[in-house]
Simulated scan of single mutants.
Amino acid sequence: MANGKGNDTSLKITLPYRWYNKIYTKGFSVVDGWLVLDILEKIDENTYKVTAGKQGRGFEVYPAPAVITKKDKKWTVKWIKERK
């Protein structure tokens, strides 16, 4: 993962087998450069609520809610702001 500061890192993650069938085979493994971890809800054919790996401070990556939307044949991610 490139952080834009010249200090890149590699992450190793382990995903359950169901991830392959639920996410990967549908073409949602990486959307807009973000790793999709789970599909939470299908809103319609072009919109899904998901959990994706989001970069925090430094090299931190954490699961965060997002909506992926297909527009002009391209999927994009919009992060859902978490209430504190």
Rank of each mutant, 00 (worst) to 15 (best):
I80A: 02
F59R: 10
A66E: 04
T69N: 05
T25H: 00
V30M: 08
K42Y: 04
T25A: 00
L35A: 05
M1T: 10
Y24I: 09
G53R: 11
V50F: 05
I39D: 01
I80T: 08
N46T: 10
K26W: 01
G33H: 08
Y48K: 13
D44G: 00
S10I: 06
K26S: 02
I23A: 08
N21K: 10
G58Y: 04
D8M: 06
W34N: 14
S29T: 05
E82Y: 02
R18S: 14
A2L: 07
K70Q: 12
V30F: 10
K42D: 05
S10H: 01
A66Q: 06
M1R: 04
V31D: 05
K71V: 13
T69H: 02
G27Y: 07
K54P: 00
T9V: 13
Y17T: 11
M1Y: 01
G33I: 07
K22N: 06
N7H: 05
I13L: 15
E45C: 00
Y17C: 03
S29M: 09
I39C: 06
Y17R: 14
G58Q: 10
E82P: 03
K49R: 15
L11Q: 05
L15S: 07
G27C: 05
A52L: 14
D72P: 00
A52W: 01
W75L: 02
A2C: 01
G56F: 06
K42I: 13
K5D: 15
Y48F: 15
S29I: 04
I43D: 08
I68G: 06
V31T: 07
D72Q: 01
I23P: 00
N7K: 13
K22L: 02
W75T: 05
R83A: 11
V36N: 06
I39K: 14
I43C: 09
G6Y: 09
F59T: 15
Y20N: 09
A52Q: 03
A66I: 11
K70E: 12
T9K: 04
G33L: 07
K26I: 01
E41M: 07
T69I: 09
T9L: 05
G4W: 12
I68T: 09
F59L: 14
V61N: 03
E41W: 03
Y24V: 14
G4A: 06
L11K: 11
K54S: 10
G6T: 11
G58R: 10
W34M: 11
L37I: 10
N21S: 10
Y24E: 13
A52M: 09
